[in-house]
Design a binder for these strands. Structure first.
Lengths: 200, 200
DNA sequence: GAACTTACTTACTAGTTAGTAAGTAAAATA
DNA sequence: TATTTTACTTACTAACTAGTAAGTAAGTTC
């Protein structure tokens, strides 16, 4: 299979398989799992719905592929030198920046926030991957919080695990609030988080 | 129309119109707006789908009726003597108790949390009612927080408006986390909120 | 150059969706 | 008692849903 793209490099012109996954992810975040269809994707990409079934036999497969890729991305990002080298408070700021990017890209919701409401209607493998995604993210943030408190760059009471769970659900909720209203509540909430977490 | 129910009293045997609304609300909270249908309701209530169209001509009408009723309930609850008579910290505990009830009833998500993800796919009147619902709730909590700080029964930094927005999105997110995992994260998060808000 | 694989399209199925129109039986009203 | 209203059911439509099977054209491998 000839490709104009360099191997192991981000494709300049993504293949159909990737374009389907990209668009499905964007539709999933924009509308939820139950409000997008193979037809939506096919129309936008100028292919036939059956072509999507060729790459992702069932919608379950497609949905699971989206969450699995996000999980891979999370692990990759978390272990990036430019992230691991940061001090804990900067790591938290880097996390805030990710959510801010979501906001700015008009996605306005994170994976967790997009799937939590429909959770009971999701195929089991998707549920499992989302649980893993959220668990790993929460554990990472708990470690960052603990390290931050130890070095006095982050301030909070209670256990790192509880604070981590609270922080992440707040961020997910803040994006949802931005979707329902506008940017204002998100900025208000993240500002409040910074005020509480970072000693003046 | 004869009724076995006393007028202006909660119906012992709710009429079809109310039973539709009750079930639709429960399905909406359990599965999201796009994952329940008139057929689901009809089957469960042993009526025909067209009977639902008689009471709620379109799904938009049904969805809007759900949110409108929740908005009426919020206003009623907020103005209840047994709520207005409480001290601010107790009012906040009363709010926590409402979310705890959601959790215990296996609903595990509040109205905002159920609709935020699908927001862009909702009919405009539903969007408007949900915005009003969230705005009024946020304003009420902001007042409670301000009063609580003034009487030194609630502790927080920053503006009541920011803290209110943060608190409510955290609660909504906590219920979503309970849905994805189990009760544990909810209890962890609410425990953390109490620890931060209520002086020892 | 023959055989095989990849990446689709065309054509279809069976089920579900919201929604409509017409009919009906019982209850309320005049 | 006659008329109207309420609360449905039956029967239908048009559109959409995920998913399948068979065909095809181009590229790859032997």
């Amino acid at each position: 299979m000839a490709s104009i793209n360099a191997p192991n490099a981000p494709a300049l012109v993504p293949d159909t398989r990737t374009r389907i996954l990209d668009l499905a992810e964007s539709l999933l975040l924009a509308r939820g799992f139950n409000a997008f269809s193979y037809q939506h994707i096919a129309r936008e990409l100028n292919i036939k719905p059956a072509a999507i079934h060729y790459h992702y036999p069932s919608k379950d497969d497609l949905g699971t592929a989206i969450v699995s890729r996000q999980l891979r991305r999370l692990r990759k990002w978390r272990d990036l030198p430019r992230v691991t080298d940061l001090r804990p408070n900067q790591q938290l700021e880097a996390l805030f920046a990710v959510y801010d990017t979501h906001l700015k890209q008009n996605i306005r919701v994170c994976l967790f926030g997009a799937l939590a409401a429909d959770f009971q209607t999701l195929p089991a493998p998707m549920q499992q991957e989302l649980r893993t995604f959220n668990r790993e993210l929460t554990e990472w943030v708990a470690e960052v919080l603990a390290a931050g408190r130890a070095t006095q760059t982050i301030r909070f009471v209670g256990s790192p695990a509880a604070k981590s769970a609270q922080l992440l659900t707040t961020l997910a909720g803040a994006l949802q609030a931005a979707r329902v209203h506008d940017e204002t509540p998100f900025q208000l909430i993240v500002g409040q988080l910074r005020l509480e977490l970072f000693p003046a």
